[in-house]
Amino acid sequence: MLKQLFPVKHVVGYVASLVLTLIALVVLMDLPAAVEIGILAVTAILQASLQLVMFMHIGESSEKKSLYINIAFAIFMALVTIFGTLFIFVWGWYA
């Protein structure tokens, strides 16, 4: 019963997400900023994909191609908005 209620895939996903959270905590130590941002980016993206694939079963739908395109477009849009705005207001600025 327990095995039935707690499938391996879900348990592994859960443990992995906890581990990734703990790994992200290393940025609280004194590392170069670029490395820290890199660690955060990698762990966050891994966690997100973990949820997407292992818990949300993005691949099980018959529409998976459309779903991947949808998520890709959303990420494109998110990155463009974030980095575009930073480009305009911060990095690309001179007065």
């Binding site: 900023a33 670029a34 911060v90 990095w91 600025w93 001179y94």
Partner: peptide, 11 residues
């Protein structure tokens, strides 16, 4: 230096 703003974001 205004062009140097990015440092404030990571620093």
């Amino acid at each position: 230096d205004p062009g140097d703003e990015s440092t404030h974001h990571e620093g």
